[in-house]
Amino acid sequence: MLEVNSLSAYYGLFQALFDVDLRVEEGECISLIGANGAGKTTLMRALVGALKVDSASVLFEGQPVGGQSERQQLARGVTLVPEGRRLFPSLTVRENIELAQHHGRPGKWDAELLFQELPALAEVQNRMSTELSGGQQQLVAISRALVTNPRLLLCDEISLGLSPYAVDEVYRLLNRARKDGMSVVLVEQNVQRALAEADRFYCIQKGRVVLDGPAADADHHAVANAYFGV
């Protein structure tokens, strides 16, 4: 479904990604594992069009789509849950979700279905997003991405700073959405969880993929080495 071929990404003169190769199959979940500053966020931003990259370095269903705008990637079904949630503080919970729904793809997920699935959110739908707990905010951030009805969902640090209970709730929602065949790319600081949720993993170190393979038989020692860069 998605194929990344020797992708390089730059911030001005600084090169953040070097020849990254990666693929995601239909319905698959992959984890990107790496220390802070390794380039995970950069890779995801490149995939949704927030960062300009070479056209041929990103193939979606065989078509070169690298460097196209966020709206074009969204229309194709590639959506990002950004690091730090980034809800709009001037919008209510419902407005946050409906804004994305309005600009996204038509499909099964909409605000009503989400409020059905998450009664706790339904109760606070008319509050400003800043009034919610961290866990609830993260659920809104994921909901906001789901209502665009993505085929490939990119999740950047969706459990950061949440209580264990809130983390479980976040993954419950994610797995609920995966049942319909949606593919997921996950960035998760908790390596155990990252491997448990994913089918395959990629270790990224200083902008390069240094290790990859099926998550089930990952060598935890090798992953830790790749992570810490020993």
């Binding site: 927030a50 229309a75 804004l99 309005h102």
Partner: peptide
């Protein structure tokens, strides 16, 4: 939304 956070507004389309 654009006034709050232009980058994220672009992300939601």
């Amino acid at each position: 939304a654009v006034a709050d956070d232009q980058e994220t507004a672009r992300l939601v389309g």
